[in-house]
Structure formats: structure tokens, C-alpha cells
Design a protein around this nucleic acid. Structure first.
Lengths: 343, 343
DNA sequence: TTCTCTACTGTGAACGCTCACAGAAGCATG
DNA sequence: CATGCTTCTGTGAGCGTTCACAGTAGAGAA
């Protein structure tokens, strides 16, 4: 019972093979591999040729064993509901991070910690040093995992501002408040004065900040902030529909509504149309996210674009910097108003 | 300039620490870690206690270095267009695989190989043994990567049947043909006889098989297969819309249409409604996938559910079996007809 | 010449683990 | 009592790297 050659896989060349081929020592090959300082041009070239010839690829396990680094990072999703997976933004984020890391030749480990059990297992895995850092994605923000990892000294970057974690943890976020301000200002500029809002969950930064932006702009413009015009949802389509119905009941004179996500805005459109209100003539509707849902809706949604591609790139940049020894940092990125048919 | 304790991260306990704590040797601890054979109950217990006490987690790099396995698998997406990322099924697949692997304590490495460059880099990475196997997801199927990896002896499981790779490569797929048969039979049972079809791309197994199922059932039922009732699309919404228009022009008496994806079916609905046909009264519409698009459509789509959760679970099962030395295998999973409003 | 400095190269010792092997202990068998 | 077998345990070697250190050679300065 030999397992010599299962499937034709043979032992890959080692640094030793390269050294022999190039006529130098292991040390010199290693130096070439790690930046090429203190290596003569001739040796440099001989080693590179030998690497090409042998098809050598460094054994990361051996390297990691001695360096203590793993040269990989985790993408951690701590979400009881797997809602994030249905969120199109999640895809962009995941893809963006993978690509940004690939440029540094760093693999991304996808980690899902839905249950308490998984959370424990993954925390152990991470704190044991199997990844150099963690990109954290969680919507609800009193996340114990973030706290634990931070205390264990694991480099960490969150997507969106984590509430109640102090300033010790890095994060990258879109400027929710400013985006909301843009949208509400836009609605005001259209002459609307009875502007409703369907917020996100108020235990998330997005929920809180977008509502704050709404309030600020109305106050600045001298428009009354009417509690009957404020309801909150949970980012789901159904909650948008329910929210709009409540708004219509509480404030029938509403002439615009700012909805804190495109998905909820779709629900709002449905409710408005059922109530016989025309969009945008009777009620203007503004969404948030610029997700595919925004163009799938009819009429197409005016919305706030979150710079997801830049968010992922920045998350990776900040994380790598932190792994490199820099201090935690917060990055806030600007949003953009995208005008379509619904306003 | 010491780097003793950056961020509070200290050197994790080794197998040696556990051995000392338990009063046994490294070897015994190792045996406990790897199944516990040839270990006395008392030693077993002492070691487990020591592991709990020290918080020991095995250093996978050290283990991998000697075993030659990496105890991780890659999830490889070879897609020039990043279309898959927009596909809701992709999420389910990715999540399912991650979770199924997590049960075996195996991390998933997400790999994107969009460009030729990335493809080369990743092939090198994989063939160097940095993952034990690969879950391959690519829609168009003459994929050179699959061929290369297979030749290098890397365990591999594809999602969907790869065309033209011989029987050497494992795959897991839904029974496209049978699903199509179910749908067409369903349409026949409603009394429809002029049943159109919008196929997927005919260089994909899904495209080919679903059309074959359509043909078979009509032939078996003694209903004429009319070429004017057959058009093909590319799974996009727009192509569904265009397809329906062609069908209406070529066969105005069409009373049903089987569409090879829900997204295309959405387009079909749009075109039908524009043409003044009522769904399902004038024309019944059947989709495929049971994606979120199916319930988002109005009327909600009757469709064929692909068992994505089982597909991912089976992919992982087959891959692990193959890593364990078993031969490649093909798994075909049954689909399910989901009746909604559109038929 | 001799010393020092710089640029480069080779070598042994880890890193933390598994594996093969040697041995010990217990028990039944010859 | 020796022998074999089974169950269990400890030990040394080695996986493929990097790192620290000890050289070597050549150039410039004393």
C-alpha cells in the first residue's frame, strides 16, 4: 500500500534544489526570494534562472513556521442571520478585498461565524496565529468577536464604524451622515418639505448616522422635524413596505421619503403605488447604497452610492499597514448622489 | 527595539508545553491530537485537560510542513466576467461550501482568477501544494485551468458538468434535463400545446441539457417540436426580453414559454406584458433556478429549484473523498418544481 | 604591509510538528 | 522461563524555510 504518486503529484522542488541548480547556497536563494539585498547581480540572475527552470514555489508553511507570520488574512463575517450574503454590496466587498490582497500575493480565508460555537472555534483559530489579520464584516455592532480579537492583539479592520469599541479598532466606512445630508438636501431642492424617512436599525452606525444627517439638514433648512415622518426598518424589503404604510397613515401629506437602503426603497415604492401615489410626482423617493436593486426598481431609484470598491481597497491597505506595525486608523470615504427617475 | 509583545500578542503554547503540563511526551500528545489511537485512557484525559488549561491550538504550518498536506481547500472562480458574483446562487454555493468545510475544520481560500495573469499565478500557487484540493466554479466550460490542475494531480470538483474534459474530473450538478422535463410536463398538464423555450448559451451544459429535456418531453407527448418556438439567450434579463419578442414574432400563437433562467424569465415577463399578453392566462411562464428574482417578479415565477445547498455539501464531500484517495465521481442531484403564479 | 570597512556568501540552528522506531509492560501461549 | 503478541510510551530525525553569525574577498585608509 504505497501512496507514492497518487494522481501523479510529485514532490515539488525545494530551495535546496534551486540552490544546487544555481550553484549557490540556500542562504543566497533565500535572500533573493526576500528582496534581494546583499546579493551580487550574477548570483541574483543565476537564482532567478534556476527558479524558472525548476518551477520552484516557496513553501509557505515552512516559511510561516519560522517567521511566525502566515501571510494570509481572514475575511470574517459574524452575522447571526446570513443576511449579508444576500446583500449585493457584500459581493463587491468580498471581491474587492480578494483582489486587493491578491496584488500582495496574500490569500484570503473566508470565515463564517454565525453560531456561538463557530464564533469560539474561529476565535481560537485566529488567535492561534493562523492569519496575520482580520477583515471584519458585521452589521450589528456590539460584536464580542471584535473585542476579543482586539484584546488578543490581532490586527483588525472593520467595515463600518463599530459602536462602543473605543478608538482602538480600525475601520473603513462610507460617510453615511454626509450621504444622507446630500439626499435630503436634494429632496429639499426639489421643493419638498414633508420629507419622511425610513431608517435602518438604530443599533447600527448606518441607521444612526443616516437619520442624524436627515435631522441636521432639515434643522439647518428651518424645516420642522416631525416625528410622524420618522419610522425605522431593518434594511429588508418587507420592512420598507411596512414603513411606508405607517408613514402614509401618520402623515398623509408626505411629499418625499428618504429610505436608508435601496432594498427598503423597493418596498416603499410598492406601498406607494398600492396607495395610488405617483413616484416621483406625488412622492419623491430616495434610496441608499446604489445597489442593483436601485436600477431594478421601477421607477429607477435616485440613491446614494457607497464607494464599495474603494472601501475594500482601503480596508486591505489599513490592515496591511497595521500588520506592518502601524497604529489603528479610521478612514471615512465620501459618497455620491446618483440621480435617477424616482425624484 | 524589541518586538516582544506588539499589541499584547504572545507566543502561543506548543505541543511541548502541553506534554509537560500533562506529564507525558510530545508523541503521546500528538497521538491524542490525531485520533487518540494507542493512547491509554488516563493519558488521553491528562492531555485533554492540559490542552484546555494551556489553550493550546495546533500549529498548522508545522503540521503541514511534515504531512505535506495543507488542510485547506481553494474555492476557485475562473470567470472573465465577474458575473457569477452577481448571481445569487453563487452566494449560496460559497456559503454552503464554507460551512460544510468548517465542519471538518478546514478553511476555505477564496481565489479569483479573472485575468490570464492571475490564472497563472493561482495555478502555480495551487500546484505548489498550498491547498489540498480545489472547488471549481466556472460557467463556461472549456476551462484550461481545470485541465491543468487535473494533469497536475490536484483533487478537483467542478460545479456543473464541465464539457470536454473527459470523465477524469469530478463534478456535482443539478439534473438540468430532468428539471426541464418537469417544467415542460407541468406546462403540458395545464393544457398548453404551443410551448416556447428560451434556452441558455448552448456552450454550457445547462443550456444544452435543459433544451434536451424540453425536446424529449414534447416528443414523448406527441407534440410537434417547432423550431420557431426555440430561441436562445445568455441568461441575462435583456436577452430574455429579446428572446420573448422573437418568439412572439415567430409564433404568435404561443401559449406557454419555458425560460432557462429566472433572470431571463423576468425579461420575458416584461416583453409579454408590453405585448399585451396576460400571464398566466394567455401565456404561462416557467423559469429555472428559483432565485430571488423568481419571487421578485410579478407575477411570481413558477420555476425549478436547484438544490444549491445540497450541491455545495456534495462538492465538499466528493472533494474530501478525493483528497482521501478515492477516485473522481460525478453526482447528479434532483431538482424540484416550485409552482407559483406565472403558470 | 596591515587594518578596517563594505558587500557578499555559506552554514548551523532553530521553528513546531509528525513519523518511524525502539522499547516497556502486561498477558497469554508454548 | 522463554517467546510472542498487543498496547502503550518516549525519542530522534527531519519536513523546508529564515535568521544570526561567521566567514571571505576586495577596496580604501593608515
Amino acid at each position: 500500500m504505497t501512496m507514492s504518486n497518487t494522481g501523479g503529484r510529485r514532490r515539488p522542488p525545494t530551495i535546496h534544489d534551486v540552490a544546487r541548480e544555481a550553484g549557490v547556497s540556500r542562504g543566497t536563494v533565500s535572500r533573493v526570494l526576500n528582496g534581494g539585498h546583499y546579493v551580487s547581480p550574477s548570483a541574483q540572475e543565476a537564482v532567478n534562472a534556476a527558479i524558472r527552470k525548476t518551477g520552484y514555489v516557496v513553501n509557505r508553511h515552512a516559511r510561516s513556521l519560522i517567521t511566525g507570520r502566515s501571510d494570509s488574512v481572514g475575511f470574517l463575517l459574524t452575522e447571526p442571520q446570513e443576511r449579508f450574503f444576500e446583500d449585493p454590496n457584500f459581493n463587491v466587498l468580498l471581491r474587492g478585498c480578494t483582489q486587493a490582497l491578491a496584488q500582495h500575493d496574500i490569500p484570503l480565508l473566508l470565515m463564517l461565524a454565525g453560531t456561538e460555537d463557530e464564533r469560539r472555534r474561529i476565535t481560537r483559530y485566529i488567535t492561534a496565529g493562523h492569519v496575520d489579520g482580520v477583515l471584519l464584516v458585521s452589521s450589528h455592532s456590539g460584536d464580542p468577536v471584535a473585542q476579543e480579537l482586539r484584546e488578543a492583539g490581532v490586527p483588525l479592520v472593520a467595515c463600518g464604524k463599530p459602536i462602543g469599541l473605543g478608538s482602538k479598532v480600525s475601520y473603513v466606512a462610507a460617510d453615511d451622515r454626509d450621504g444622507a445630508r446630500d439626499m435630503v438636501r436634494h429632496l429639499l431642492s426639489l421643493g419638498r418639505r414633508r420629507i419622511g424617512v425610513v431608517t435602518g436599525p438604530l443599533d447600527t452606525p448606518g441607521g444612526v448616522e443616516r437619520l442624524a444627517g436627515y435631522r441636521e439638514v432639515l434643522t439647518e433648512a428651518g424645516v420642522e422635524v416631525d416625528d410622524r415622518l420618522i419610522v425605522s426598518g431593518d434594511y429588508s424589503r418587507a420592512s420598507g413596505e411596512a414603513g411606508a404604510e405607517r408613514l402614509l397613515a401618520q402623515a398623509p401629506d408626505m411629499d418625499a421619503v428618504f429610505v436608508a437602503s435601496d432594498l427598503m426603497a423597493q418596498g416603499v415604492l410598492t406601498a406607494l403605488q398600492r396607495a395610488g401615489r405617483r413616484v416621483p410626482q406625488d412622492v419623491a423617493v430616495g434610496g441608499f447604497d446604489d445597489s442593483p436593486a436601485a436600477v431594478a426598481a421601477s421607477p429607477e431609484l435616485t440613491t446614494i452610492r457607497q464607494p464599495w470598491d474603494r472601501i475594500s481597497a482601503e480596508m486591505v491597505r489599513v490592515l496591511l499597514a497595521q500588520i506592518g506595525g502601524e497604529d489603528p486608523a479610521a478612514v471615512i470615504l465620501p459618497t455620491e448622489l446618483v440621480k435617477r427617475e424616482s425624484t
